[in-house]
Design a protein around this nucleic acid. Sequence first.
RNA 1: GCGAAAGUGGCGGAACUGGCAGACGCGCUGGACUUAGAAUCCAGUGGGGAAACCCGUGAGAGUUCGAGUCUCUCCUUUCGCACCA
Length: 872
Amino acid sequence: MHESYDAAAVERAAQQYWDERRSFEVREDPARTKFYCLSMLPYPSGRLHMGHVRNYTIGDVLARFLRMQGHNVLQPMGWDAFGLPAENAAIANGVPPARWTRENIAHMRAQLKSLGFAIDWSREVATCDPGYYRWNQWLFLRMLEKGLAYRKTGVVNWDPVDQTVLANEQVIEGRGWRTGALVEKREIPMYYLNITRYADELLEALDTLSGWPERVRVMQANWIGRSEGCEIAFPYAEDAAAVAGTAGVVRVFTTRADTLFGATFLAVAAEHPLASAAARASPRLAAFIEECRRGSVIEAEVATQAKKGMATGLHVLHPFSGEALPVWVANYVLMAYGEGAVMGVPAHDERDFEFALGHGLAVATVVRSTHGAYEEVRAPWIPAYAEYGVTVNSGEFSGLSSQAAMDAIATALEAKGLGRKRVQFRLRDWGISRQRYWGCPIPIIHCSACGVVPVPDEALPVILPEDLVPDGSGNPLAKSAAFYECSCPRCGGGARRETDTMDTFVDSSWYFLRYACADAASMVDPRVDYWLPVDQYIGGIEHAILHLLYARFWTKVMRDMGLLSFGEPFSNLLTQGMVLNHVYSYQYEGGRKRYFNPAEVDTRRLADGREVNEVVTSDLGRIEVTHEGLGKMSKSEGNGVDPEGLVQRYGADTARLFMMFASPPEQTLEWSDEGVQGAWRFIRRLWTAVYEHVAAGAAFALEPHSLEPPQREMRRAAHQALAKATDDIGRRRSFNTAIAAVMELLNALQRFTDLSPQGRAVRQEVLGIAVLILSPITPHVCHTLWLALGHRRPVIEERWPLPDAQALTQDTLAIVVQVNGKLRGHISVPAGADETAVRLAALADDNVRKFVAERPVRRVIFVPGKLLNLVV
RNA sequence: GCGAAAGUGGCGGAACUGGCAGACGCGCUGGACUUAGAAUCCAGUGGGGAAACCCGUGAGAGUUCGAGUCUCUCCUUUCGCACCA
């Protein structure tokens, strides 16, 4: 052991040791309890960022901790390797996405290894490998057979200059991100997965996910958005029937059937068939519909924009009164929700109220409050009453509670064949077609004679050619005859292969199953039943909705196909917080802003206490920059910290220790160079403590029963720290406090200067406990220190010790004494002292006696081992 | 607008089941060692006060022997969803 701590050498040695012995490769072993510790797989963007490091460190600490507790721990890693950034890089550099992706994977794998994560690399999965994505295709075909996948036209963003489809995030303020051209909406055929068939189960099963954060469950529940209500049909009046060319109805969905008699108009979405029919005779209406279609697609803007509308001139009939109601086209009605039409009840719906107010439509009050005086809703002075109440002016349904009226109206509608109760979900089916190159090909063939023909199983996988280079205009697959030319599996005639690829969320919806059986000849095999479900899943909150919902759906589909025996993939979920850093900027004359990395900023404190932040620049010399506060580490704000540089400068252990210590895992983590140095200092202090102990020669065997009180106390502190750390890591996932407990222990050890034989024996034990506790967090240095302390087995093979109950016992206890609830003294009593004894000891304390004075003690609250409160 | 979470020293945070508020770290102050040091070690560090002691967990009320923790009202911040009929 060297006197000084050399992180690079220590880490090289430990990593080499683990590598040579394949320490982290695991096999299924029914005799041992398994623990599947999974971190969300990274997109191979090129370099790890701090978010990755934090994510994987949390997972690694848990994996190593549970391994030491005797579990058979699987911690795998893979790559979410398809996706848009590879295509963008290809456009920028002319490199095929496959090469770019594989080079990135190689670099990032090396970075992960340098951080010392206990990963079973033999199970590595990259979603761009045909051996992986063939099973996307295979399951897609099974879903097609069951009607769970289907083809339908859908709306996409179309860039008219690049002649390409844009993802939503590529549309910036309605314009293509590269060309700046106004984006058009186009309708093209796409494939959808019928996730709505599972909406009920996806919602209900959320209650069983007790290991998930409440807020993630709430977000999913809101996203699924279940509403109970009633479907109501409004028959066409003569004018509508004439325009439509046939008799018919407009269906609406409502959660407030009790307000049906207050309907004074009907509003339909711009895309509604009746609107299109009416627009054929009215250029003005056609223009309005076109305006709605082009309107902002950013939903937050849509929600706040004015409620615009135009009358169609057509009418529908109220299902009970037979009254003719005007049909309007309104921009606040969504085609994709419910029936794409609503009944307008201005008196009892704020949106309808606002619309009626703006367009001079009638208002009819049909629900009154159960308390207070009846008040008729009158625009604009008396606003809509959207609460439940008692029905009025509703014919035979008057005088009922809202709930009773909804039931009665639904029953009556059903008898007339004009409606029924039903449930409506906000969740929509999952469109998986992407008009993109770098993704999993959809296994479909288009034959002019046979139509849409699935690729037969024996022809899978449909391999994505890896030598194409996208140029920004459209999908290169659609221009590659070698790819799209094929023969029809049914008739053998010439046919064209589908050139759309799958949404990358498909790839990440089941990768965690493949890790369990990465070399299986089928999609999954029985090893999945050993490892799954995942015991601890760790990832960013940004995946709270889509990824986690899709993975749950996909798991349920596979279960229902008999491929899996469970329906929920992730038993416990930890959503780690973001990594933040300071943001510094300088504003040039003219307004252009330039950001500076905090590492370049030199902070001084002036005499008046004010902080001055300065940067030396090549163009302006030394300038003062503005501290804008904290922001997520990002390229645009130039405040990122590169993990590679950090590891080079301080070592992986320091990086890991700092990240786990600086804040609890679910909270945001503020980057601090001083904090990193603090972590580094602590490791060095531990190193020095072990070095000095070892340098003094081997310690004697500990004789626990012949210790002096200070030695017993030192030993007790160690076992107490062990008990706390075990609970903090194992149950509370509170790594920062576990580390604090070890720091405290080391501080106590530094005050313990006893060099007697038993003193050194205690020191040997205390240092050993400190090293064991830290070993999941700073595994490299603990590997070296554990061997240096004279142990033969490497620390990763050691069992996590149980605290010694004997060591934890105390002869005397410190009791807090309060008088009238205020702290007045500390006393020390023998362990097991009863209330009377403690009370006598308390009243012997000068300060306590002073506050009790001559007053009689009216009441005594005694918490054994902790506290005595005297009420006078 | 709706929903959720959170407000504790100069800063990150701790206090888990209602029982010593501020563990641990950073920063800062003083000292030791040193030619010197942003290295290391030691001591101090919520506010007021000479002290006894008093005050103190966003604000206000309440429950309790006792409230950072529980209840109510309000304020602020962050996040998510956003015309979902």
